[in-house]
């Protein structure tokens, strides 16, 4: 029974794979439908999809916030570059 369900409506492994595939490529009609039915029955994969999109967004968003952090002595770094350029 379970096997049949997996074949018809995907295993969680396959469902999460399609969730990732969807981000980069187009799914077939069959895949779209299978994923939809799977999610309607599976809270874990529904959560996974939400969090996956959130992670996507967060990664592209990260640069804007982190870029003001700097942990080196900029002045001496500039001097060392200028020194190298003169060689």
């Amino acid at each position: 029974m379970k096997k049949l369900m997996h074949i018809l409506f995907l295993s969680c492994l396959k469902a999460t794979e399609l969730i990732e595939k969807k981000i980069y490529f187009k799914l077939s009609i069959r895949e779209i439908w299978q994923l939809k039915v799977h999610k309607s029955m599976c809270q874990a994969c529904t959560n996974y999809e939400k969090q996956s999109y959130l992670i996507e967004k967060a990664i592209s968003h990260m640069e804007n916030i982190q870029s003001d952090k700097i942990e080196i002595d900029v002045e001496s770094f500039k001097k060392s570059i200028l020194g190298k350029l003169k060689q």
Partner: peptide, 28 residues
């Protein structure tokens, strides 16, 4: 092996406000 989530790895609900999260320093 059958492709089901392992019970301890099942994604739960994060209950998070997305807009808030993206700017949350600790999250980042």
């Amino acid at each position: 092996e059958e492709g089901d989530w392992r019970p301890e790895k099942k994604p739960g609900n994060w209950n998070e406000d997305e807009g808030h999260l993206l700017d949350d320093a600790e999250f980042n």
